[in-house]
C-alpha cells in the first residue's frame, strides 16, 4: 500500500510508471468523497481504463457508528433529488426535505454529491462505500503509526477502506490512497477523540 500526498493525476501516472515501469495490471484508486471534487481529480486520468484493471473506489462519510445520520448518499441508498441547482443522490426524506448530516470530517459533511459521481455509480465505473467516524479515526491512528503521513479525517475514510480490503487482495494488487489533506486542521478534534498524542 502506498499513500500518495499529491493532487495531480498526470503526476500520478508518471509516478506509477517510475515505480512499476508501467501502469499496474491490478490497481485500486481509493479516495474519499464528500462533494467529490478530490476523487474526480484523482481518477480523471484513469476513468477510460477497464475497471478490471483499475478499480475506482469512493469512500463517503458514514457518520458515527451509533447514529442514523451520515453523509453518504451514494452508498446508503439515497434517492435522486435536487439541491443547490444540481440533481444528485441526496440524503432526504420522502417529502423532499433535506436530511441533517453528521460526520467527524467537515469536508465530507454534505447531503448531496457531484452529479458526475452519480453517473460513475450508475454506470458502475466506480464503486462507492462508506466508513464510519470510528473507522476513520482508527485508520488515522494506524497510518500515522506505520507511514510517514499525517492524513486528515477526510482521507482517513479512504485509508479505512484500504485497510479493510487489503488482507483479501492478491499480492500483486496495488492500492493507492489519495492522502488529500493534512491532519493539522483536525488537531482539536483528534485531541478530543484520541486523547493527548
Amino acid at each position: 500500500m502506498v499513500g500518495v500526498p499529491h493532487k495531480s493525476p498526470e503526476n500520478l501516472k508518471v509516478q506509477l510508471k517510475s515505480e512499476f515501469k508501467k501502469i499496474p495490471n491490478k490497481l485500486k484508486l481509493i479516495n474519499c468523497v464528500g462533494g467529490g471534487s478530490s476523487a474526480y481529480g484523482f481518477w480523471s486520468e484513469f476513468i477510460d481504463y477497464d475497471k478490471k484493471q483499475i478499480e475506482l473506489i469512493g469512500v463517503e462519510a458514514g457518520g458515527p457508528k451509533k447514529s442514523k445520520l451520515h453523509a453518504a448518499p451514494l452508498s446508503r441508498n439515497a434517492k435522486i433529488g435536487i439541491l443547490h441547482g444540481a440533481a444528485s443522490y441526496l440524503c432526504q426524506n420522502n417529502e423532499g426535505q433535506i436530511n441533517d448530516t453528521e460526520s467527524i470530517s467537515a469536508g465530507l459533511d454534505y447531503p448531496g454529491v457531484s452529479p458526475i459521481h452519480c453517473f460513475l455509480k450508475d454506470t458502475k465505473r466506480a464503486r462507492y462505500t462508506y466508513a464510519t467516524d470510528e473507522d476513520a479515526l482508527s485508520a488515522h491512528v494506524m497510518v500515522t503509526k506505520y507511514e510517514n503521513l499525517n492524513p486528515s479525517l477526510e482521507p482517513s475514510h479512504a485509508f479505512a477502506e484500504a485497510i479493510k480490503i487489503a488482507p483479501k487482495l492478491s499480492k500483486d494488487t496495488i492500492i493507492i490512497v489519495n492522502s488529500c489533506g493534512d491532519a493539522k486542521k483536525d488537531r482539536d478534534i483528534l485531541r478530543e477523540r484520541l486523547g493527548k498524542r
Binding site: G81, I82, L83, L90, Q92, N94, E95, G96, Q97, I98
Partner: peptide, 9 residues
C-alpha cells in the same frame, strides 16, 4: 416553494 418537493411528490 422549491423544486425538490415537487420532484419527490
Amino acid at each position: 416553494g422549491y423544486y425538490n418537493m415537487i420532484f419527490q411528490y
